[in-house]
Simulated assay, not measured.
Amino acid sequence: MPTAIETVSAFCTEFAKDGGRPAVRRWFTAQTRWVNEGLSVTTGIDEAIAMIDGLESSIGIATVHIDMLAIAADGSRVLTERLDRFERDDGTEIGRSMIMGIFELDGDRIIEWRDYFDTGAVANFGSA
């Protein structure tokens, strides 16, 4: 079984494909909570994908590239410092955000993902 850091690293790499949908389907469970502090909370795979679909239709986010700046684990909890880059389907950048996140795992499945970031900067993505 992969380590917690290996699991989160694989998830973040896979998140660049199809807006993150394959990664969500592979590593989330029916009970996984995904918290974008100050913006959204989803529970389970279907709600997470619906949120991704909503961001794609409202802002045009088709791809998210996650640049891992730092990563550390405390047992089954993984802390990340990231630069997330949001792009349209044609590859043009919508925006980028510095993010501190925490992933909680059960084996190789993500059961909670919480991200903390400047919500004001993200709110301007749609006006770019």
Rank of each mutant, 00 (worst) to 15 (best):
S40E: 02
A48G: 06
D46S: 03
G20A: 13
T3S: 15
H65F: 02
I61Q: 13
A121N: 08
E81K: 05
V64G: 04
S127F: 09
M98P: 10
F28Y: 11
A16I: 07
S97T: 08
T29K: 01
V24K: 03
I66S: 08
D115M: 09
N36P: 02
A30P: 02
T63Y: 01
S97G: 04
R114D: 06
D106E: 05
D108Q: 15
F103R: 03
D108E: 15
F103S: 03
P2N: 13
D84M: 14
N124E: 14
A62P: 05
P2I: 04
I61F: 08
V64C: 13
R96F: 12
D115N: 15
G95R: 04
A73F: 06
D89T: 09
M1S: 11
I66E: 09
T29F: 02
S76K: 00
L39I: 14
Y116H: 14
V78L: 02
T7D: 11
G126T: 09
S9R: 15
G91I: 10
R21H: 01
S9F: 10
G38N: 07
H65P: 00
N36L: 11
A4F: 07
G107F: 05
E47R: 00
R88I: 07
C12N: 15
L83A: 11
A70D: 11
M100A: 15
D108N: 15
E81C: 08
E93N: 06
H65S: 03
D89W: 05
R33K: 06
V64M: 12
R88G: 10
T119S: 07
E37P: 01
D106F: 02
D90A: 07
T32Q: 10
I45M: 01
F11E: 10
I71Y: 08
D74T: 08
A72K: 08
F28S: 01
N36E: 14
Q31M: 00
I5P: 10
W27F: 12
S9V: 11
F103N: 02
S58L: 06
I71G: 12
R96N: 14
F86A: 10
I52S: 07
T119N: 09
W113K: 06
M98D: 14
R82E: 13
I49H: 04
A73Q: 02
I99N: 15
A4K: 07
R26S: 08
L39M: 13
V78T: 09
E87T: 08
G44K: 00
R25V: 09
I59N: 05
D74E: 11
M98G: 12
A70C: 07
R25S: 13
G75M: 03
R114N: 06
I49R: 04
H65W: 07
